[in-house]
Design a protein around this nucleic acid. Structure first.
Lengths: 70, 70
DNA sequence: ATAAAATGTAAAGTGAACTTGACATCTGAT
DNA sequence: ATCAGATGTCAAGTTCACTTTACATTTTAT
């Protein structure tokens, strides 16, 4: 799964620290997310979409067996 | 967090077992999801939205601290 | 050049998403 | 009434999302 979180964040001119505070998660969580180290929870994905004023599907790119067809 | 998975599933006239097979998860996962016992992963939420032809935000209702404002 | 801010890495711990399996109850058709 | 299919409960296990802390590197401004 890929995401465009870093692109969105920089386009909003906020730091990882600021983003982590808005989301009530650690900065490490933001770093790992942007690096694609793990997949966020549904709630975290929803909050990110709220902050960036877009849909969850705008932020994340699902691949392979993350889709129904496989 | 609430969801409308049971309503969507019954409107599509498929059983929990059939849905679980389409999603590659256990039937227990569907039961627990419909009962609101836990929050699905982002990937599972995405697959559900694909199956039902809607968005993730159509399926799930976020409340309280699951939103940015709190 | 240097200091500060921003970003990154590493590692160990916790909780919850999801699994498996066994058994109970409800519903509908015959 | 009964049998099968669908739905539900309970419990124990595994995996991974996310945390915390501490330290290293890169970027930016002066």
């Amino acid at each position: 799964m890929q995401n465009v979180i870093k692109e969105k964040r920089t386009s909003f001119h906020i730091t990882q620290e600021e983003l982590s505070q808005k989301l009530n998660v650690s900065r490490q969580t933001i770093i790992s997310l942007e690096k694609g180290k793990y997949k966020p929870s549904l709630v975290l994905a929803h909050k990110l979409a709220q902050i960036f004023g877009c849909t969850i599907e705008d932020l994340f790119i699902f691949e392979g067996d993350e889709n129904i067809d496989g």
